[in-house]
Design a protein around this nucleic acid. Structure first.
Lengths: 327, 327
DNA sequence: CGCCCCGATGACAACGTTGTCTGGATCCGG
DNA sequence: CCGGATCCAGACAACGTTGTCATCGGGGCG
């Protein structure tokens, strides 16, 4: 900036005035300054500007399990879209479901003075965020609640959605329904299990521990468990899958079986409608999650200081046929 | 920081020494400072630090078409992974294929003094980046080259990959092969068309303008064109699809047809192997693209000043069956 | 002619850090 | 008892900006 000032024969303050479109600069002077800026390729340093002005950094931190996962990348995109209307950029970080990594990222983002944090929590301990929140850092949790912190949270109706899946299957006459979910220490997984139980109770389906499996995360493991559940004297005739990845594992495991069980998966996925049979799913909207979280965050940034809110977005059962295969 | 200093009864310089683990602080003093930091929830301001030290901001800018698109989100994740080993964060921005938006994002990132830029270029004009690059901002272009700037670039072998697809189909006896691609002003689209032509020439397949369609981007449009191509007196028996989205449109359009043409798509996608028939694709690795770009960028950051490089990553034809359907 | 006001510009401090240098104890050997 | 080394700690400037205030010349008005 001082180089520009020297070249234009003015003080740095005048350069500042020009780059900020402040009034009270003689047009001829402004001309000279702009020419100098052009010639030197000057671009003002936003960090220094924000430091001096004490204004926001114009950035948002988003921490999730994996940006590469379509579910979260759609969520990220939605956040970005809202941020854009507010002239803000988005910093992303993948925690890989590791609480330590999440903490590291969050504190790093705080040290960078992001304007706010959107977090898909890994683990259950988030007390480390309390000082930051007290210091005025707005934090919104998405997809899962924080373990030990009261803060704005946006969730989907895991319980209702899974219960709907059971209801749908029961309506088709299924009485032996299995559930495959993620590790039970993951919030969404345990909620969906709860929804499964409630659904069974409400639909008059006998709930059996022997038909519930939490945490199988490899294709072979899923295949082996499926074999067990579908064989035997009293086999399951339908399966509810607790998430996307498990659904896909199941599809691969079932691919070569002649008779498939009915199947409803939690989470929609591309091409589900083009499979044979098309896969019925409990749909929830990642973009809407992201949008809701970002809007909550921006409301806080604009001074909303009402008590923390918990938003639960609805799910929608999309019957495509896989739930209707006769036993 | 001065609050901490006051509370601990020391100067701010001593606080600085403590937070930076500098030697030469009395353990008892350090203790007091740490206690004060804890009590006040102090966190040092990284922007100010970087400003003062003149060191890097520890951030990378990534500009792509859409973070929500799985292809780019996997790429982003790979970049993030490499950045992480270097202790850097990633700022992302979606250009939506709009050159103006891309420019805006890029200049904003430069003003934030990111350490480097990874760009999936939209449009053909990137002259605006020249001053930044001369000022020392390393830029790597990914997936497509920049129109008018010489810089590091990481591409995939679009021509070879598409030619392979044609060769594969020709080997199955197909002689009338159609090509559906993206708008021809998109680099990858025109390259793949070129590959299609070359493949036809090399494999002895007659290339026909009437079988080539660039730019249909809605399902109905794709369906209508497919109808035209597959009907008539001399119908196509096979189709090459120029990208993911078009492949999916085609699959939907073909879903209810009794006899499908053979099909090879550019870009792999999840579940392609579970469709009926499984879809053959030309596979390329988004993660590898991201990794290669990030590594190139970091090499520049470490002082590599060799001439700009152009890396072309290979593609791999994965035959799954859809290319082998008899005409 | 003197006054005030206004438009244009610059000097200076400050944002929150850290690098450099200096000051004051304390301790050792001679 | 003194010189110098060693250990701690603080004063100050600087990073690149911008807000505040002061300066200066000129024009309008009484």
């Amino acid at each position: 900036m001082s180089d520009v000032a020297r070249l234009a024969g003015v003080s740095i303050k005048t350069v500042s005035r020009v780059v900020n479109d402040e009034p009270g600069v003689h047009p001829a002077t402004a001309e000279r300054v702009l020419a100098a800026i052009e010639r030197l390729g000057f671009r003002r340093n936003l960090s220094a500007r924000n430091l001096r002005r004490g204004s926001s950094t114009g950035t948002l931190g988003v921490i999730l399990e994996d940006v590469g996962n379509p579910f979260y990348s759609v969520l990220t995109r939605a956040v970005e879209e809202v941020a854009r209307t507010q002239g803000r950029q988005v910093l992303t970080g993948s925690s890989d479901e590791d609480p330590g990594r999440e903490r590291e990222l969050a504190l790093e983002f705080c040290a960078r003075r992001v304007d706010g944090l959107i977090v898909v929590p890994a683990g259950m301990q988030h007390g480390y965020l309390v000082p930051e929140m007290q210091a005025g850092m707005p934090v919104v949790f998405v997809d899962r609640p924080a373990g030990d912190v009261v803060a704005d949270t946006v969730l989907v109706d895991n319980i209702g959605g899974t219960a709907d899946a059971v209801k749908h299957l029961a309506a088709q006459g299924h009485q032996r329904i299995a559930f495959f979910g993620d590790a039970p220490d993951i919030f969404t997984a345990s909620e969906r299990l709860r929804g499964f139980r409630e659904g069974c109770a409400r639909s008059g389906v006998r709930y059996g521990e022997d038909l519930v499996f939490m945490g199988p995360h490899t294709e072979t493991r899923v295949a082996a468990l499926l074999d067990r559940v579908l064989g035997g004297p009293d086999p399951a005739t339908a399966v509810v899958s607790g998430n996307n990845r498990i659904t896909v594992h199941m599809l691969r495991a079932l691919y070569h079986r002649p008779a498939r069980p009915a199947l409803v998966g939690f989470d929609d996925f591309e091409l589900a409608d083009l499979l044979n049979p098309p896969i019925s799913v409990v749909q929830h909207d990642a973009a809407m999650l992201g949008r809701a979280a970002a809007e909550l965050l921006f409301a806080r940034l604009e001074g909303d200081s009402s008590p923390p809110r918990r938003v639960v977005l609805p799910t929608r059962l999309v019957a495509r046929g896989s739930g209707e295969v006769s036993p």
